[in-house]
């Protein structure tokens, strides 16, 4: 399969008053088209930095980031970003929230885009709520709205920054299934950042395990679990084996960091 997103020896430093922080070190990995990939690693290793670099919100200090074999530009329209919290604007209706991106890019009069927004709302059972305000929706519904807001812009690549972390466990499992279903049925390529190993295994085709900062790729794991949804994939016989392998990788890295002077 062709490489869809490619990190080539990407290094990133960020500056603080106290010092220069070496966040990423010669990071290389790739994600194939329509793949659902996850980044897991110790806390503070730079997972969100990787998403910001991919979205063009930050510029790499060294190395290249390619999407569909073209370098990522600032404000690259091929990329959609979904954050930890839904960040719906409370003063706007659901419809106005969904069409926010279209409005910003002056496409809110485009009948094709508006039809897509309507179609997505209908498909994911939110159409009857289009004139409601965000506070009238449940946590799971709000996350679906946030995802549709991103999908309406028809990005080639979706970046998901722990989008389920603010939800309670039961809602989280349900929303995980919903988001996975939406991404797969809309034929999108996705890169997820998560702290939750089970979530990563149940949703991903590929897991990229990172080291402590300065982060680099420790290992990559391609998965092919049985099941149509993340919830079903949790029942796969190899689920536990993968969990243990990732856990071992992450914990040895933590130990090494503690030992290092």
């Amino acid at each position: 399969m062709e490489k869809f997103l490619e990190f080539q020896d990407v290094t990133y430093f960020y500056q603080t008053k106290e010092s220069e922080i070496h966040a990423l070190n010669k990071m290389s990995f790739n994600v194939e088209e329509f793949q659902f990939a996850s980044l897991v690693g110790p806390s503070g290793c730079g997972k969100t930095t990787i998403l910001s670099l991919t979205a063009g919100l930050l510029q790499a200090s060294e190395g290249k980031i390619l999407l569909q074999n073209k370098a990522i530009a600032k404000n690259d329209s091929r990329i959609g970003y979904m954050f930890q919290r839904d960040h719906l604007f409370e003063w706007r209706s659901i419809w106005q929230n969904i069409t926010l991106g279209l409005e910003l890019q002056k496409m809110n009069k485009d009948p094709k885009k508006l039809a897509l927004a309507e179609q997505l709302l209908k498909k994911y059972d939110l159409y009857s709520f289009k004139n409601k305000k965000p506070h009238q929706l449940s946590g799971g519904m709000r996350q679906r709205v946030a995802l549709i807001r991103t999908l309406v812009l028809e990005p080639a690549l979706l970046l998901l920054d722990e989008p389920f972390s603010a939800l309670d466990f039961q809602t989280r499992l349900k929303v995980c299934d919903d988001v996975y279903d939406i991404i797969k049925s809309e034929k999108k390529t996705a890169l997820l950042v998560t702290h939750d190993i089970s979530e990563a295994i149940s949703m991903s085709d590929r897991i990229i395990i990172l080291t402590q900062r300065p982060a680099t790729v420790k290992t990559m794991l391609d998965l092919n679990l049985e099941g149509a949804s993340p919830l079903e994939k949790r029942e796969d016989k190899d689920f536990g084996k993968h969990f243990e392998m990732i856990w071992r990788n992450l914990s040895t890295d933590e130990k090494q960091t503690i030992k290092s002077p």
Partner: peptide
């Protein structure tokens, strides 16, 4: 993060001011 969201949707500073 809301400002970052706006930037990720390519909002300029005027749009960030007036819409957020």
């Amino acid at each position: 993060d809301k400002i970052l969201l706006m930037k990720s949707m390519h909002a300029n500073k005027f749009q960030i001011l007036f819409k957020l």
